[in-house]
């Protein structure tokens, strides 16, 4: 029986030696629309070290995908605009990089996998053509060399008979196979950072297990950093080393994966954990977070989570909490966990 052990052994990068590969500081990405300014990413900071998987989790509209698109500079501009902050990647600020430089980095040093493998592949070119395009541009391979490289990559991502499938079109493949092609394409130029935006959301669980296993093994082989964006806490638990929780365009909590799942501190994170049914059983009523994610055009004042928070007080409605380090790299943005704040009461959220 083919068995693969699912473990989250500490990667080389988890000790955080040296400087981070990706260092995002106070990133602000806004969309200027006719109805007003949407602050899609509002002061987000986090880092990723080589070999590390950083999970970014949050509900739809929380800004997790816009963060990824900002790193790749793939935002529609206008209406989108990076209004502030910096994205240091391998010592270079991507916010100020020229479009020509970004074209070299995109697909070269940073690879990206999107959620929907059907719409992100070009239907009129063979998958081989599409992988070869990337390696021609970034690795300067030509002709047979490029084709052989494409076949190698298809073999590496576990596509059976790659010599034949390299000449197939995306519609001839299943969803899982297309996602493998996307991964082959993203990894074809040996990126240092792979951004995976909901890479398995459109796939069945058995195929999801194959794809996550594949990303994990390629990561340890190639030593790249992975930014895993998902709403699925199970996927996060199984892939990430460190987790960033986003809510309403901000980071509300950040910690090592075991610490975060074992001792979540922010009321939003705690609510999220309680609202998923456990696969291990139990038919108790699910706890829910009341209300819905706020409209980004009219975010609430103070802490943006306060209208849905059971602990909210007057103070929360007026003042926005800061993202503070509670020790050992566990950060939380909540007045209850702010030792110098007037509401400090960590017992309530532990």
């Amino acid at each position: 029986m083919p068995e693969a052990s699912v473990s989250s052994e500490t990667p080389a990068g988890a000790a955080h030696v040296g400087s981070p590969l990706l260092d995002i500081q106070d990133l602000k990405t806004y969309f200027h629309t006719d109805d007003g300014t949407v602050k899609a990413v509002d002061g987000v900071s986090f880092q990723a070290w080589p070999g590390e998987t950083v999970g970014i989790v949050g509900e739809s509209g929380c800004g997790k995908s816009v963060t990824a698109l900002s790193i790749m500079r793939l935002l529609p501009m206008p209406p989108g605009k990076i209004e502030g902050g910096s994205i240091l990647f391998d010592g270079e600020d991507l916010v100020t990089a020229s479009p020509a430089r970004m074209r070299q980095i995109r697909g070269g040093k940073i690879g990206m996998i999107f959620q929907e493998p059907m719409t992100s592949l070009n239907p009129v070119f063979t998958v081989g053509n599409q992988i070869e395009e990337a390696v021609r541009l970034h690795l300067h391979l030509r002709g047979k060399e490029a084709r052989d490289h494409a076949i190698d990559m298809l073999a590496k991502v576990g596509i059976p008979s790659p010599e034949a499938r390299v000449d197939e079109y995306p519609h001839q493949m299943s969803g899982g196979m297309r996602q493998r092609v996307m991964i082959a394409m993203a990894l074809s130029c040996h990126p240092k950072l792979l951004i995976a935006d909901e890479p398995t959301t459109a796939l069945d669980v058995t195929i999801q297990a194959q794809i996550l296993e594949l990303i994990r093994s390629l990561q340890s082989e190639l030593g790249m950093a992975v930014q895993m964006i998902t709403h699925d806490l199970g996927v996060i638990a199984e892939t990430a080393h460190r987790v960033v929780v986003m809510y309403a365009s901000k980071v509300v909590e950040m910690a090592d994966v075991k610490e975060l799942f074992g001792r979540p501190r922010h009321p939003y994170t705690r609510g999220l954990f309680r609202s998923i049914p456990a696969i291990t059983g139990g038919h108790d009523r699910l706890q829910t977070i009341e209300g819905t994610v706020p409209n980004p055009l009219e975010f609430p004042s103070g802490c943006k989570f306060h209208p849905r928070c059971t602990f909210a007080t007057d103070h929360c409605t007026k003042h926005e909490p800061e993202l503070l380090d509670l020790g050992e790299g566990h950060l939380s943005a909540c007045w209850l966990t702010d030792p110098s704040g007037p509401m400090y009461d960590p017992e309530k959220v532990s």
């Binding site: 693969a4 058995t206 999801q208 297990a209 996550l212």
Partner: peptide, 16 residues
């Protein structure tokens, strides 16, 4: 194959 929201859990997975 179902991912479990518990990073401390180690288990054998049957990958089809």
């Amino acid at each position: 194959a179902v991912p479990v929201a518990d990073p401390t859990r180690e288990r054998a997975r049957i990958v089809l």
